[in-house]
Simulated scan of single mutants.
Amino acid sequence: SDSTVLVCQTRVQASTITFPEILSKLPQLGVRGIYAGSIPAILGQFSSHGLRTGIFEASRLVLINVAPTLPDIQVQSVASFCSTFLGTAVRIPCEVLKQRLQAGLFDNVGEAITGTWQQDGFRGFFRGTGATLFREIPFYVAGMGLYAESKKVSLILI
């Protein structure tokens, strides 16, 4: 499953053992080990996607009213940028917790939260923000543009 692959990938990245060695240890991990980090991953995905979509729509409406002559593609791009930037504020802490759980650094979400806070403070929850934004902004600007265009097409078809 995808979760199994992510756990294996995270453990390989967090250690010096190889992917085949991790695969051979899957039976020892058990179900709990295979699905480690699922709770923050699910919460992060749902909340950040909902937040991103809401911010996209709100930003788009503000831009249309503030700058009515701005071309649609620019409105969509700026709204996508805003929504991605703000949406990752929820997702990145969830990703940090997920990865630390998958790497076996903590046994449960509560320990991951308190341990991250004790080790790294508030900034620890946002480790990797720059790299994440560098990866996600271009992807989501294109994706949200396609989302907006598909909404237009669906309205024409209805």
Score class of each variant (00 low, 15 high):
82 C>Q: 00
45 Q>W: 05
66 V>W: 10
89 A>L: 12
42 I>A: 06
58 A>G: 01
4 T>S: 10
77 S>Q: 06
98 K>N: 14
29 L>Y: 12
4 T>Y: 00
77 S>H: 01
43 L>A: 10
102 Q>A: 03
81 F>H: 05
12 V>D: 06
36 A>G: 02
25 K>H: 12
17 I>P: 07
107 D>R: 11
6 L>I: 12
63 L>C: 02
115 G>Y: 13
153 V>P: 02
33 G>A: 04
142 A>D: 07
118 Q>E: 15
103 A>V: 09
79 A>P: 00
154 S>R: 12
54 G>H: 05
51 L>K: 06
105 L>G: 13
76 Q>P: 08
139 F>L: 09
101 L>G: 01
115 G>N: 08
110 G>R: 08
73 I>L: 06
93 P>K: 05
152 K>M: 06
4 T>C: 09
96 V>G: 03
143 G>Y: 03
60 R>C: 07
58 A>W: 03
156 I>R: 12
60 R>T: 00
44 G>H: 01
111 E>W: 04
144 M>C: 08
157 L>W: 05
24 S>E: 11
133 L>P: 05
117 W>N: 10
72 D>E: 10
37 G>V: 06
54 G>C: 04
96 V>A: 01
72 D>N: 10
138 P>H: 02
143 G>K: 00
99 Q>G: 12
129 T>N: 05
74 Q>Y: 11
5 V>I: 13
107 D>Y: 14
18 T>F: 06
104 G>R: 02
30 G>C: 07
50 G>K: 03
71 P>M: 10
82 C>I: 03
142 A>W: 01
135 R>H: 02
112 A>R: 07
90 V>M: 05
7 V>N: 14
101 L>W: 07
129 T>F: 08
14 A>D: 12
134 F>W: 06
19 F>Y: 14
150 S>R: 04
135 R>W: 00
74 Q>P: 06
35 Y>R: 13
101 L>Q: 10
69 T>C: 15
6 L>G: 09
6 L>S: 14
3 S>I: 12
7 V>D: 15
122 F>N: 11
146 L>N: 07
47 S>F: 02
72 D>L: 08
102 Q>G: 03
106 F>D: 14
2 D>V: 14
99 Q>A: 12
90 V>A: 10
137 I>H: 00
149 E>W: 09
59 S>M: 06
20 P>A: 11
66 V>T: 14
51 L>P: 04
119 Q>D: 14
156 I>F: 06
122 F>K: 11
57 E>F: 11
146 L>T: 02
51 L>Q: 04
75 V>K: 08
139 F>M: 09
52 R>V: 07
33 G>Q: 01
143 G>N: 00
94 C>H: 10
32 R>A: 13
155 L>N: 07
56 F>K: 00
145 G>S: 03
113 I>H: 08
40 P>D: 05
